[in-house]
Amino acid sequence: MAKKFKRSYKFAIKTSAYITVFVSLLVGAFLLFLGNLQWLPMLVFVITTYTFSFFIIQQRVEYFIYRRIKKIYDNVSLLDSTTLRPSQVTTDMATLTREVEKFAENKKLEIEALKIRETYRKEFMGNVSHELKTPLFTVQGYILTLLDGAMKDKSVRKKYLNRASKGVERLIYIVKDLDMITKLETGDLHLQMEDFNIVDLIQSTFDLLEMKAAKKNITLTFDTDYPEPVYVSADRERIQQVLTNLVVNSIKYGKKDGTTEISIENLIKNKVIVRITDNGEGIEKQNIPRLFERFYRVDKSGSRKEGGSGLGLSIVKHIIEAHEEKIYVESVFGVGSEFSFTLEKSKELP
């Protein structure tokens, strides 16, 4: 930033001229009074006085401004004062004004960003609290009931212990998902890259979730037959997790007797895009940008009729980004949603 300052001589030129005129008139009048005024020595005196005044004033003003600006650098942390050199700071205050205005604008943007982050942090903490306290209170309630005497009844004891166990399982599920996201963000969870047929992986995901889909009579299908394998290079286990989370979501929020369809398309020479499309509830436009936030709920009622940790889409996003790929979402409320992500094709067939 300091390199943008330019040297200005206007102040020194004008001030030197004023001083020279005043001193010359004073000396000239004195010599004239003594009767010893000579024009050639007087001209030399004028030039010498002007030149000396100019350099002294220019240097002193620059030094003065340098010290003041350096103090701003040090005290206000406007800039790194180690990058500031006296030769770069001059009487050109317009440049400094522009830089200060630019600094103020940048700080304003930073403050606005911090406010957005603070709002997100508060929402996140509230969501974490909600997700954890529900199973905790459930477990606590059943255990306290048993301690109050219900454990004497064998049938009640078994039922309550099973329900408490489910609450503990939900807590473990949430903690494991949070741990996975943290590892993905910090790079501690290393991907095991391999070449595999994405068509087979999708089919195995369908087989795994067939019974879950059958409860709502939702059909899991490809958009077309894929007689030839489509080989991609990725972490097979993590991509299966991505597919599972996306298909489970489509079943959760899909309409009864609906359809979840997956297609695989060539995107560019070395990429494919996998699309998961459903004809379910759809997502309102204002909720789409925040879908991948941890614990973000489209349903603000706070209910979790469908279960889950609330971290599925966040995990999906982190896994895809860990592969240095992109994930997209398109949705029309009341019509359906489409989630899609890219993968790199295998360079060599396995």
Rank of each mutant, 00 (worst) to 15 (best):
M1P: 03
K4R: 07
R7P: 00
S16L: 02
S16I: 02
V23W: 01
V27H: 06
G28E: 02
A29L: 10
F30R: 08
L32W: 10
L32C: 12
Q38C: 07
I47D: 08
T48D: 07
T49D: 09
Y50V: 09
Y50R: 13
F54A: 12
Q58W: 09
Q59C: 06
V61C: 09
E62T: 10
I65K: 06
Y66P: 01
R67H: 15
R68A: 11
I72H: 02
Y73K: 02
D74W: 02
N75T: 07
R85W: 08
T91N: 08
D92P: 00
F103V: 07
F103L: 08
A104S: 11
L109E: 12
E110S: 15
E112A: 11
I116H: 10
I116M: 12
R117I: 05
R117N: 15
Y120V: 05
R121D: 12
K122V: 14
F124N: 04
M125R: 09
T145Q: 10
T145G: 06
M151Y: 11
S155M: 04
S155Y: 05
K158A: 07
K159F: 15
A164H: 03
S165T: 12
I174C: 03
I174Q: 01
L178R: 03
D179Q: 12
T182C: 06
K183E: 11
L184C: 05
E185M: 05
H190E: 13
L191I: 07
F196S: 04
D200Y: 04
L201W: 00
I202N: 00
S204V: 10
K212P: 00
A213H: 01
K216W: 00
I218N: 00
F222I: 07
D223T: 14
T224Y: 02
D225I: 04
Y231N: 04
V232G: 00
D235K: 00
L243M: 09
V247I: 13
V248Y: 02
S250P: 04
T259G: 03
I262K: 02
I264A: 09
E265Y: 09
E265C: 06
E265L: 12
N266E: 15
K271E: 10
I276N: 03
E281W: 04
E281C: 04
Q286H: 14
I288M: 15
R294L: 11
R294T: 05
K300W: 04
K300N: 10
S301T: 15
S301Y: 08
S303Y: 14
G310F: 03
L311A: 06
L311G: 00
G312W: 02
I315L: 13
I315S: 06
K317G: 02
H318M: 13
H318E: 15
H318N: 14
I319K: 02
H323T: 09
E324M: 12
E324K: 14
E325D: 14
E325G: 08
V332R: 11
F333H: 11
G334H: 13
V335S: 14
E338Y: 05
E344A: 11
K345Y: 01
K347T: 11
